[in-house]
């Protein structure tokens, strides 16, 4: 798997890529290692001693109460807030590359309904240096169209971002995050405030991406149902650090998690009798 091949892959393309084994990452795939990460903002420690191995081909969900530092962790990974410790990416041959290539899907865009930014503008601004206010590039158009096709959004290319529904915006952002295909795909509560239909569609696409590509996905979510259904591993964040990591059954059986979310279904789920147990 060379990086050069990564840019033009389609999300819902035909075959899976072969997954190569590596030695140090447990599951034997490429992975991203977060070691001793801490974040201090304005004298307040937001995160400390965060250690994570995020494996390729897996969806890692981060759960925790509001203010537990979930979004800050993503911002540290993206490089927007300064952090201590290290974030390194090990490829399938167990070689250190530089920082992992990040794809990021934010919660929402900071635009109002009258914003004259079209979907094309967004793609072109991210993918090319040719100023979008001056001229349009057929090559970028084609790239954007291909990317959008993967999220069933080709028809959105010339629409204004402000005129799209919440679900459509998230699909556009997902398509953008996959161009080029990143090592680490970060989803920051990507579907808060989206209707049920859009939500299912979004998760189905993320699930397909996990099958398709050799990348790690980190999802911050409040939607425990969806986490239980789609996540391979769950990270429970509380008191500024990681309190529990493991498969959903294990983490949702953790007393601290049960106490935090206090939901009957968490116990049911852990006991194997949850409503979504079959779906796994």
């Amino acid at each position: 798997m060379k990086k050069a091949n990564r840019t033009n892959l389609k999300i819902l393309g035909p075959g899976r890529q072969p997954k190569v084994r590596c030695a140090t990452c447990g599951t034997g795939l490429c992975c991203t290692k977060v070691q001793d990460l801490d974040v201090v903002l304005g004298g307040t420690t937001i995160l400390e001693n965060v250690n994570l191995h995020i494996h390729c081909g897996e969806l890692t969900a981060i759960i925790g109460a509001n203010g537990a530092g979930k979004s800050t962790l993503l911002k540290a990974l993206v490089g927007e807030v300064q952090h201590g410790g290290s974030i390194s990416y090990l490829d399938e041959k167990d070689l250190h590359t530089n920082k992992p290539l990040m794809g990021y899907v934010p919660q929402k865009l900071e635009i109002d309904g009258t914003s004259p930014t079209s979907v094309y503008d967004l793609f072109a601004a991210a993918l090319s240096n040719r100023p979008v206010w001056l001229s349009h590039s057929p090559k970028v158009r084609e790239e954007a169209r291909k990317g959008l096709a993967g999220v069933r959004g080709e028809h959105l290319l010339d629409r204004r971002l402000g005129a799209l529904s919440g679900g459509e915006v998230q699909r556009v952002l997902l398509a953008l995050a996959l161009q080029p295909v990143p090592d680490l795909l970060l989803l920051d509560e990507p579907v808060s405030g989206i209707d049920q239909e859009g939500l299912k569609m979004f998760y189905a696409m993320v699930s397909a991406i996990r099958e398709e590509y050799d990348l790690s996905i980190i999802l911050v979510s409040h939607d425990l149902d969806m986490v239980a259904r789609y996540a391979d591993r769950v990270v429970f964040l509380e008191n500024r650090t990681v309190q529990a990591v493991g498969p959903p059954q294990e983490v949702f059986g953790n007393p601290a998690v049960v106490e935090r979310f206090g939901m009957g279904w968490v116990r049911d789920f852990a006991a194997g009798g949850g409503p979504d147990a079959d779906a796994l």
Binding site: L74, K75, V78, G79, E80, M102, G103, Y104, P106, L109, E110, I111, T117, L122, A125, A126, L161, L173, A177, L186, D188
Partner: peptide, 8 residues
């Protein structure tokens, strides 16, 4: 459009 997206 989005500082974190730009940073990423």
């Amino acid at each position: 459009l989005h500082p974190s997206l730009a940073r990423s």
